[in-house]
Design a protein around this nucleic acid. Structure first.
Lengths: 224, 224
DNA sequence: TAATTATTCAATGGATTGATTGATTAAAGA
DNA sequence: TCTTTAATCAATCAATCCATTGAATAATTA
């Protein structure tokens, strides 16, 4: 193996990595990816969910496909896009943690925010299970009702993020609240945690979301 | 918190993520980042290491800086670039694993490669320590001699990747070999593992590199 | 102070990207 | 078969990106 070959190998690896990173380097594609990660969706639905035009959504989805981040399957006259196999969520999770770290670093200079520090430190699945067993926490699912009813973590109560502020009275003031939504890169529950804290409720964020919980083979409740 | 606010928060988060991903979306910037991750380097050195022109390297480095992936510090008439704090390696590691996963998936269709599967499964620090204690493995450092001499894992022998093929006789034929270099995103040791296997030596890849080992506070040897 | 070295800035041009529009293909139903 | 619906393709245009060039700035040395 000559050092020439090594350089070439380095270059091709970096080129591959760069290609993936580039594909992730568009807010619209990230939004599409996030929705696709919830389950197979048609182009039309994805366009609607993201507010993009059909043609534009289609092109972005094809871009994601070229990078092997999503897969397609035909269903009658529709084409369903679903997330590809592989550690895609890990990449998005790592990216999110990096972004949050950077944001925290900036904010810790600007503001003296006390909540900032531990907002990043989510609660782990293991700790959650332990705390649930001794019922010292309330588990809060902030996804839309329909998603909640399709399946949720056992014992969770559902208050969609968009109505959280008006339904704070449903939450116990003494217990700590652990919020979760779709995945580690879901922004809904971090804003939920902010809202809760601003209202004097002790709140933390589950470091995994519903899809991961399901993937880990843990028990799930359905219905309302 | 209205659902309008959520959408805006989503958008800004995704925009931030996309910006980081975009910055990583260039092979040249990834190369620069990899070198910078080894320690503080001047623009000139980095230009030389990557084969870029000074002005070009400088601009890419500034791009990396704008995304808070590197930091600068003046040293006399030179400007030293170093890696920023935060889980940057985690992102690169996750990206690399994703790329390798994709590559493996393609290759497992094309070729019937037996080695492909477990090449990805590196050996963990814990397992390595155990195996070293019972001296059932040989630890191989494939970085350039100078880096090796600055510090390496205890008990490792050094054969730089570019001369590995000519020095195979230095390696025991009966022991398993564990190769490592700089970090999980270092391509050197994966090519090293390939070379070794092609020559009938049982080889695996350490799932962390020297920087991580050092960061974990484990013992280090210096000198030749 | 002048000359040197290291880096950045500013301007240029070619290549690529992202969104829009309208045309085209594919499958299903009337 | 003709129409409808879902998705993709092709063409366009503005915006951005990347590398190059040469000039400008900053710190050091003669």
């Amino acid at each position: 193996m000559s050092s020439m070959d090594i350089e070439r190998a380095q270059l091709t690896l970096f080129t591959e990595l760069a290609e993936i990173a580039r594909t992730l380097g568009s807010p619209h594609r990230l939004m599409l990816l996030q929705h696709v990660a919830q389950g197979a969706r048609s182009v039309e639905r994805l366009a609607e969910l993201t507010g993009l035009s059909m043609a534009n959504a289609s092109q972005h989805l094809q871009h994601l496909k070229r990078s092997n981040l999503v897969a397609t399957e035909r269903d009658g006259k529709r084409v369903l896009y679903s997330i590809a196999s592989g550690p895609i969520n890990e990449v998005l999770g790592a990216l999110t943690r990096l972004a949050e770290h950077q944001r925290a670093e900036i904010q810790s200079v600007i503001s003296d925010s006390l909540t900032q520090r531990d907002r990043l430190e989510g609660i782990s699945r293991e700790e959650l299970l332990e705390r649930l067993r001794e019922s010292s926490v309330t588990l809060l699912d902030v996804r839309p009702r329909e998603e909640f009813e399709m399946g949720h973590l056992p014992g969770a109560i559902n208050i969609p993020a968009e109505v959280l502020e008006e339904h704070l009275s449903m939450l116990p003031q003494d217990h700590e609240v652990v919020a979760y939504c779709r995945g580690p890169h879901c922004v809904l529950s971090t804003s939920a945690v902010d809202t809760l804290r601003q209202n004097g409720i002790k709140a933390r964020l589950l470091d995994t979301g519903f899809p991961e919980w399901k993937a880990a083979g843990l028990t799930i409740e359905t219905g309302a």
